[in-house]
């Protein structure tokens, strides 16, 4: 249930408020977005009712101002929501969103997140090479003196392919491991000290 206004300008201000709130809550389930919207509307309503006898628009603007920055309210809510959701899924999009929502929580956490990104790139390369190996058998993991290549090497390079077709199941295992680590890491880097 939304607030009923008599004044057209008040209606517009309130609608603008709801639109900016909606934009900031993108990524949350509809039911959660409605819940937050309802609660903040209820807050504004109560705040307006307890204000002195002023024109409706003035009361509304005052209540929105006293509520504070919408970013300060919604960012922690969205970040917490993403963590809870990411902790229960291995969906890469959800995990990425959760990292984005929690960026900048501290240097230590940022470094751990960075290491995870490096591991993600390595895993992604393994996956790409293993997929290409189905069409180009010379693709693989080559190791030799001063050589570590994921891909192909020319014949003169003194390197030996070490995994052969095993690179395909290993890429699969690495992917599952990566998603699991991402989920665990998220819980660690976002926990409050």
């Amino acid at each position: 249930m939304s607030i009923q206004f008599k004044n057209e300008d008040s209606k517009k201000v309130y609608e603008q408020f709801l639109t900016s709130l909606e934009t900031r809550l993108k990524g949350l389930k509809k039911s959660d977005r409605i819940e937050i919207q309802k609660e903040l509307s209820s807050h504004i309503y109560e705040s307006m009712n307890s204000s002195e006898d002023k024109p409706e628009l003035e009361k509304l603007l005052g209540s929105i101002e006293k509520l504070g920055s919408l970013d300060d309210i919604t960012q922690p809510i969205v970040a917490d929501y993403m963590i809870r959701y990411a902790g229960s899924t291995l969906n890469p999009t959800v995990l990425l969103n959760a990292f984005a929502a929690n960026k900048g929580r501290s240097v230590q956490r940022f470094v751990i997140g960075g290491l995870l990104i490096v591991f993600s790139i390595l895993t992604l390369t393994f996956v790409m090479v293993s997929l290409l190996k189905l069409f180009r058998p010379d693709m693989g993991l080559y190791i030799g003196r001063n050589v570590f290549v994921l891909g192909t090497v020319d014949r003169q390079t003194q390197a030996k392919e070490i995994l052969g077709y095993w690179i395909i199941p290993i890429a699969g295992v690495l992917t599952v491991l990566l998603l699991w680590m991402a989920s665990r890491t998220l819980k660690f880097i976002t926990r409050e000290k």
Partner: peptide, 15 residues
């Protein structure tokens, strides 16, 4: 308080 600050906290306490 900035009035809105309690809502993220209530949300966390509820979670």
């Amino acid at each position: 308080l900035a009035e809105g600050t309690i809502y993220p906290l209530l949300n966390r306490l509820k979670a």
